[in-house]
Nucleic acid binder design. Structure first.
Length: 196
DNA sequence: ATCAGGATTGGCT
DNA sequence: GCCAATCCTGATT
């Protein structure tokens, strides 16, 4: 089933860990999808979070209701997608950092310009390119829009690599502020993450 | 009005 | 490992 808003209205770290193994699906021209295998939590009073300095036009979706997408452009060329979490107005979110390809793989390969399954969606900019996620999805609901997240048992009886592995909790990637906080999560044994 | 820098990636050394 | 690409945001003048 599609995850309901109540799934996202919980504690952000809990949601981040529970998102591992869920299926991110984008239905546009075609349907492309992948299991979420790596995430990072961004919290209130977290200097690394885009919401840290208050609401602006860019981060507005982060302060909106849980269960909506926060999509932003980074370095002028890449796009990243977040899931808004917690009570409305707190500005917390979970960044989706890597997917294990699960469906529509030939379209993901075409968009990415490679056939290597390990290179299709193993990074926050790669996965948005593979699924065709663009800025117009910023602020859209994840239950009822073209971008959706399904619970692990949905749509397939397969499971991502390392499904039974322990959850590894470590520091977030690419940030300069609050770089020591352990808010990145993935499962031991999955090779589709962005880096070890 | 100006400007530094960023939750990245891919190509080159 | 290093660095350019590329552009918007937010902070400062």
């Amino acid at each position: 089933m599609i995850l309901p808003p109540s799934f996202y209205e919980r504690d952000t770290v809990t949601v981040a860990k529970d998102l591992l193994g869920c299926l991110l699906v984008h239905r546009n021209e075609t349907a492309t999808m992948g299991w979420i295998v790596e995430v990072e939590a961004y919290l209130r009073d977290d200097p690394a979070a885009h919401s840290y300095r208050g609401e602006t036009p860019r981060n507005r979706a982060m302060f909106g209701p849980a269960g909506h997408a926060y999509v932003y452009r980074i370095y002028g060329l890449h796009t990243c997608v977040n899931v808004v979490t917690g009570p409305e107005g707190t500005g917390e979110a979970v960044l989706v950092r890597a997917l294990e390809p699960a469906g529509g793989i030939e379209f993901m390969q075409a968009r990415r310009g490679t056939d290597d399954p390990l290179a299709l969606a193993s990074g926050p900019g790669k996965l948005t390119q593979a699924l065709g996620i663009t800025m117009d999805l910023d602020g859209t609901p994840l239950s009822g829009g073209p971008l959706q997240i399904w619970s692990p048992e949905s749509l397939s009886d397969r499971r991502p690599e390392g499904t039974d592995g322990e959850i590894v909790q470590t520091t977030r990637i690419g940030i300069t502020k609050a770089a020591d906080l352990p808010l990145r999560f993935y499962r031991n044994g999955n090779r589709y993450i962005s880096r070890r």
